[in-house]
Computed example of a mutant assay.
Amino acid sequence: MWLGWIALAILCLQTAFGNDQGAEFQSLNMDRVSPERWGLPASDKYSPIVEISENNFVSKVMECDDVWIVIFHRNGVMKKWKDVAKNFGGAVWVGSVDIELHLGLAEKVGISVAEITEKSNMAVVFPLRNGKKYIAMEDGLLKSSGVPSQAMLLASEYIPDKTTDLTFAEDQMQKFNDWVVKGYYYEQPSKFPVICLIDEKQTPLHVRVAAYYLASHFNFGVVKKRDVAAMRTFFKQVPEPQVYPTFLVLLGKEPSAEEMKNEMFQMRFNVMPFIDKKYGDPNLLTSLVNFLFVANSDYRKNLPGRDPAEPAEISKMDEIRNKLKQRFDKAMKSTPRQPRKHEL
């Protein structure tokens, strides 16, 4: 197994893979790619807010393994909540409950009717995994907030952060080296290193969710804006980001037999950049997942450390695709309304 030191050099994707191969690679053109190519719903298929009732509360929220933010309102969800919900894009699910119709549901989760007016909404955040939801509700430990940004922070805290902080300080380069080598050679299946460039103190919610669901095939490293300049001293061909967040998939290139013969043991990189005109809004989970499926489709067969006998279902990320599709179906598919007592 090759385990030489990594050379921080960037090679041009087009040059590295050649024009003949490039014609087959989706990442080497500017044609827009839809998540539907991978059997996943496009971003416009997501409803920002799902109507929750006493009929579907258990099936959609409590029996769902994802985080839910459920907004309790009186005669309508306020605009500030709607604006925030649009930005989630399926990273977490947002539901709404009209307490005029479902007072019992509000009481069940510990919401006081007095807290809800036409000028104030209250959101309850339900944790990851259905078992924890039931425990939190039974023990009165569900968290709530009347402020959208605070509800988003509460939701983020429920999602395990599987990312690695990278600074590219000279005394931290061994950490970067170990992070890349571990994913390539010590984990099965082998993983792509993904660098997420962010301008926030905390890892964005959709990045945390992507790192959680795609952990079997990708390792996510986070570089904060203040450290981008240090990163670019090593990756000189990576331009200054114009928008944040943005993403880079590192495509390792092992030394050739000739280079090994000449005792040149360093790994070099090609870099696949995120392009919003091609993959979508970088603030949405659907766009990030779309980008990573393209990377896997184009470059998995060249991934260092990859088992040549890797089953096709692993190479194509079938399990990830199925989980993402199932979570969408569970949250977005409508539940037939049960008739109320006076309608029977």
Rank of each mutant, 00 (worst) to 15 (best):
K301C: 08
C64D: 13
S297Y: 07
M260W: 08
G104N: 00
Y212E: 11
R321Y: 05
R208T: 04
L285N: 01
I314P: 01
T233I: 01
S334Y: 06
W38A: 04
D318H: 13
F218P: 06
E107T: 10
L153N: 10
L141K: 15
D139W: 12
M260D: 11
K278P: 04
L8R: 03
V125D: 02
F269A: 00
P282K: 03
A331T: 07
S156V: 01
E263T: 12
Q202N: 14
V147Y: 07
E24F: 15
E258C: 06
Q150V: 13
V50Y: 08
D318E: 15
I71Q: 01
D199T: 08
L214H: 07
V113Y: 09
Q26K: 15
E36Q: 15
V271F: 05
S145E: 03
F235K: 12
S334K: 14
F218I: 10
I320A: 15
M264N: 14
V84D: 09
P255I: 05
E170S: 14
D298Y: 08
P48V: 01
R37Y: 11
M1F: 11
L154A: 01
V238M: 07
N290Q: 02
V249E: 05
K261H: 12
V124W: 01
A23F: 13
D83E: 13
D178I: 12
I71D: 10
A210S: 07
W2D: 13
A23W: 08
P339M: 15
S315R: 12
G104M: 08
L288C: 05
Q21N: 12
A230E: 06
M78S: 14
F168V: 03
K162E: 10
M1P: 06
L166D: 08
M152W: 04
P255W: 13
L197E: 02
K79P: 07
K143Y: 06
P193S: 10
L166M: 15
N290W: 02
F192M: 10
D171N: 15
L153T: 10
N302I: 06
M317I: 01
V238I: 11
Y134W: 12
L28Y: 00
K133N: 02
S156C: 02
P148S: 14
F328T: 01
K278F: 03
A155I: 07
R327H: 07
P239N: 04
R300C: 06
A312F: 14
C64Q: 07
Q266S: 13
E240C: 09
Y299P: 02
I69N: 02
E36Y: 09
K330C: 14
F293D: 10
N87D: 09
D161N: 08
S96T: 09
P41T: 03
I198E: 09
F72T: 00
A91V: 02
V194N: 07
L28M: 03
Q326C: 03
P193A: 01
F192K: 12
A42K: 06
Q26A: 15
I69E: 00
L128A: 11
V97P: 00
H102T: 10
N219P: 01
P241S: 11
G140Y: 03
V294L: 09
G280H: 01
W2L: 15
R74T: 09
